[in-house]
Design a protein around this nucleic acid. Structure first.
Length: 287
DNA sequence: AATCGAGCCTGCAGGC
DNA sequence: TGCCTGCAGGCTCGAT
């Protein structure tokens, strides 16, 4: 699901509603949700109990809650990945639990509990040590374009050495993080580049413009609370964003290109759909 | 070393 | 009304 803007919406909700609170009890159900935590779900739950959530952080699509004991500087984090369908919901403990609730955290203040709901279970929880404020298991993820230390020139250089289609490179979270299928299609449309163009064959300035479009479209989406076509993509209160109304390419097969009026086409590419304008985004020859 | 594709899940829409 | 296929905001892993 959720790409950077949607994950950021969730992060802000967590910062507002759970930061500073202390976990009274944690319940982590089933193996899959904790599959990245080798000692298992029960061990993960046990390690969360009594800890204070010091803050909510994000890099790309990875979210983490820093864990502290009293006033000590946090040295560990609960990492949350939403996968394709994960939700973090703050809810009144008396309200009925949604289907596919895989984890629950209750707090010592007795207020709203935190629920992890995930229909497809591609998401999950794990624990990791914090080093310089970043969990060790997130360290291999590239900085996203909103990170103060994001190095645009370095990312351009990295993209340029990749001998693979530019869309695949945009989706590679080790090159630049946060971009998923929606915002890749939108950025490519804005830049007028077909996703199967070889990354290494693009000029540096063209790559720079494409990355800037990716950042801009994600910023636009964030202003509107993210993109949601259904109730799978919601903030911690269950509310949807409405950037879906502003999409130019993603999911727009058959509609007129907003720039030139040509009917948008859909192609299968890397096992997923890509929608683009046949006129503004010319498919490379020989691919 | 990189790059590619299949596989992991559940639910929904559309075609027959 | 089924039943079947295809598809969905992501990532990981094994084979080349």
């Amino acid at each position: 699901m959720p790409e950077l803007p949607e994950v950021e919406v969730v992060r802000r909700g967590l910062a507002d509603h759970v930061a500073g609170r202390t976990i009274a009890a944690a319940e982590v159900r089933g193996h899959r949700v904790a599959r990245r935590h080798v000692p298992g779900a029960q061990d993960l739950a046990d390690r969360l109990r009594g800890r204070t959530l010091a803050g909510a952080h994000r890099r790309g699509k990875y979210l983490w809650l820093a864990l502290a004991d009293g006033g000590v500087v946090p040295d560990e984090a609960l990492i949350v990945h939403l996968g394709m369908s994960g939700q973090m919901l703050v809810a009144d403990p008396r309200t009925p639990e949604p289907r596919h609730t895989h984890a629950r955290l209750t707090f010592t203040d007795g207020g709203g509990e935190l629920r992890f709901v995930d229909q497809r279970t591609f998401g999950g929880f794990s624990l990791a040590e914090l080093v310089d404020g970043v969990p060790t298991s997130v360290a291999h993820i590239a900085l996203d374009p909103f990170d103060p230390d994001y190095d645009r020139a370095a990312v351009i250089a990295d993209v340029k050495r990749r001998r693979s289609g530019i869309k695949r490179v945009l989706l590679n979270q080790a090159v630049v993080s946060g971009i998923g299928n929606i915002y890749a299609d939108e950025a490519l449309w804005r830049a007028g580049i077909h996703g199967e163009r070889l990354a290494s064959a693009l000029t540096g300035p063209a790559i720079g413009r494409l990355l800037d479009h990716a950042k801009d479209v994600m910023a636009d989406a964030l202003e509107q609370g993210g993109t949601s076509f259904d109730e799978l993509y919601v903030n911690v209160n269950g509310a949807s964003g409405y950037f879906d109304r502003s999409l130019s390419a993603y999911g727009q097969e058959g509609r007129a290109c907003p720039r030139c009026g040509t009917a948008m086409r859909r192609e299968q590419f890397m096992n997923r759909s890509s929608t683009s304008c046949p006129r503004c985004q010319v498919r490379p020859r020989g691919v």
